[in-house]
Nucleic acid binder design. Structure first.
Lengths: 204, 204
DNA sequence: CTTGCACTATACCGACCGGTCAACTACAGT
DNA sequence: ACTGTAGTTGACCGGTCGGTATAGTGCAAG
């Protein structure tokens, strides 16, 4: 086929969708192949295992989100506004998924990471790597918030980890509660953790 | 057998252990039966499905933790000390599991809840119920902290949800990172979220 | 002794699992 | 036209899945 590897791309997209909607364990290779319109043999020509596909799907999903993240966390934007946009992007994403699927899906990296971290080391490492990448955005944001005197941060790295834990925790609880309500207060909770009082701008 | 249902108890305990160590999807009914020394027939005499067993195991695990929780959150203890003990209990539990299994296991309710919330409504509801029970402890604690003037809490329920999200988020990240380091800062992070400065007592 | 019942034991079910394989196709370089 | 190779196809593998069927056990009440 001409288009490089159409098959690979299709498999990655479909795998991410299916696994995000249910779980790694409950989605079979056949499920993925069927929905992607790809034969079993082609699957194993493109990826050497189901686990391998999951790792690649993680990477691809992150890459697909990067442009938006780079935009949100742009140094051109005042840090407080970055924070707002970040939280809003998460909330919007979750709401959109909720409308599509009728249920809260949470963070795919965390859901699968939490499911498989004790069993599949490669997937655990990938989930960890993505957490580390997320922390880079947050650390930079926190430093800039401190530079503007909005917060006092002696321990930037630790604070970033706390924020990430909180954000992912909220998404997990929202999934368990299967409700958007919880996640809508995300920004408020993040602000409280950072010790920022402000009602800030409207941003609407 | 005399001892009521020894079989049932054994299955519940073994199921919790195995599922906590790996995941719901990767533990089979046969695995559970073998490790519990129970035959398949007896399993399905005691529980009508694997999912049913999981729900019962959740309930049993919570009940086994209740005495400790009631003790930690006793109104006889100053609220700040309750908070410290709560965090310490979690850290100790995680460390102990880490030593036993060589890996971080996180919170079983959250791991399984996150894995199955979109697929098994009964398990989702059980996980949610346990979250609600946990919130009761936290809300009461927060009210008492406010009564002592240690924090200002207009929105007790929301604050309790935030703390629970943070705590479970930390446990999940610790599992993904497979490190105790992260979870050791739990108390510090909780204090920050509550806006309590104090280095407080040593408690060591 | 006999009946009834809670519980156990094991063989078994069809469906499905992740993964393999050899035959095949399409196309690039020669 | 010939060959090497990347990619495709679908039948097929042994094993395992959650769950069932049925026969058998020990025991307490009649």
């Amino acid at each position: 086929m001409r288009p490089e590897s159409d098959t690979k791309q299709k498999l990655l997209t479909v795998a991410m969708d299916l696994i995000w909607e249910s779980s790694y364990g409950s989605v079979s290779v056949d499920d993925i192949c069927t929905k992607a319109g790809v034969n079993k043999g082609s699957f194993y020509h493109a990826f050497k295992s189901k686990s391998d596909l999951a790792v690649a799907a993680f990477e691809r999903h992150w890459e697909s989100k990067r442009p938006l993240l780079d935009q949100i966390f742009s140094a051109q934007i005042p840090p407080l506004e970055r924070l707002e946009k970040y939280c809003q992007a998460i909330v919007n994403d979750q709401k959109q998924k909720y409308q599509s699927f009728g249920k809260m899906l949470g963070c795919p990296f965390c859901s699968v990471g939490s499911e498989l971290s004790t069993q599949d080391e490669k997937i655990r490492q990938k989930a960890e790597q993505i957490a580390v990448r997320s922390l880079k955005y947050l650390e930079s944001l926190i430093r800039d918030l401190a530079a503007e005197g909005l917060i006092e941060a002696k321990d930037t790295a630790e604070l970033a980890e706390e924020i990430l834990s909180y954000v992912t925790g909220v998404l997990m609880q929202a999934k368990i509660e299967n409700s958007v309500k919880h996640v809508e207060r995300l920004q408020h909770g993040v602000m409280r953790h950072l010790g920022i009082k402000s009602p800030s701008s409207v941003t609407a």
